Amino acid sequence: MVERIVLVGMMGAGKSTVGRALADRLNWSYLDNDEVVAKLTGLPTRELLAQRGVAGLRAAESRAVDEVLAAPPPLVAGAAAGIVEDEAACARLRAGAYVVYLRARLETLVERVTGTDRPWLGDDPAGALRRLYAGREPRYQQLAHLVVDVDDRSADDVATAIINAAGIGVGR
C-alpha cells in the first residue's frame, strides 16, 4: 500500500504545487524540500548554496531525503530537482517511497521559471534548463515508479492521475 509519495522533476515541473494539491486531496502531510533543507541547516536554499557551495547544498538535500523517509506516513513530499545526481539518495528514495516523476516539456519549464529567482538559471534560463534536462531526464525516468506528464494540466488533474495510478482510495 502506498503511504509515502515523493515527487521528483525539474525546477518548474510543479513539485510544490502538485504536492500540496495531492496532500490536500489525500488529507496527508506535505513536506517541501526547501522547507526541510531550511529546517535542517537554518538557511534558505539560496543562502546555503552561496555559503556552502553545491556540495553543501547537495549534502543537505540528501539529508532532506532521509528526513522525508523517516517522517511518519502517510505523506507527500517534493524532492530537490538535483537529487537525481546522488545515486545513494535515489536508491533510498526508490526503496522507501512511491516516486513520481512530474515530466514537463522543456518549453513548459522555460515558461514557468523565466523571471523567477532561481540560482541555477543565470542569464540564459532556456540554455541552463536545456543542459540540466539533458543530463537529468533519463535519471528521473529510472528513479520513478510512475511518470506523469504535466504540460497543459492543472495541479488537481495531475494529483488525480497520481491517485488513480497509485490505486489510492480517496474519501472525497
Results as ranks from 00 to 15, higher is better:
92 R>W: 01
103 R>T: 12
100 V>K: 12
102 L>T: 13
83 I>R: 07
82 G>K: 03
94 R>A: 13
51 Q>I: 06
79 A>T: 05
134 A>W: 05
123 D>A: 11
116 T>F: 00
125 P>A: 08
133 Y>D: 15
65 V>L: 09
111 E>F: 00
107 E>H: 07
134 A>K: 08
108 T>R: 09
123 D>F: 02
113 V>H: 04
96 G>D: 06
77 A>R: 03
123 D>M: 01
53 G>E: 03
73 P>G: 09
51 Q>S: 15
90 C>H: 14
78 G>Q: 12
70 A>Q: 09
70 A>N: 11
54 V>P: 13
69 L>D: 10
71 A>V: 08
92 R>C: 06
94 R>M: 10
92 R>F: 10
49 L>C: 06
87 E>D: 14
122 G>N: 03
139 R>E: 04
135 G>Q: 05
64 A>S: 07
48 L>C: 13
75 L>Q: 06
65 V>M: 11
55 A>W: 01
123 D>N: 08
64 A>L: 12
98 Y>V: 08
107 E>V: 05
139 R>C: 07
48 L>Q: 12
70 A>E: 14
97 A>P: 09
71 A>Q: 06
51 Q>T: 15
47 E>Q: 15
97 A>I: 06
82 G>L: 13
60 A>L: 05
80 A>P: 03
105 R>E: 14
95 A>I: 06
124 D>V: 07
105 R>G: 15
86 D>R: 10
133 Y>L: 14
69 L>S: 01
132 L>I: 00
91 A>E: 14
124 D>G: 00
117 D>N: 11
74 P>D: 11
63 R>H: 12
85 E>F: 01
56 G>N: 08
95 A>M: 14
68 V>M: 13
87 E>M: 08
81 A>F: 08
82 G>T: 13
105 R>D: 15
46 R>L: 10
87 E>C: 00
46 R>C: 11
118 R>L: 03
83 I>D: 05
133 Y>N: 09
106 L>N: 03
79 A>I: 02
85 E>M: 09
50 A>T: 09
105 R>K: 13
63 R>N: 12
115 G>N: 00
60 A>V: 11
99 V>K: 00
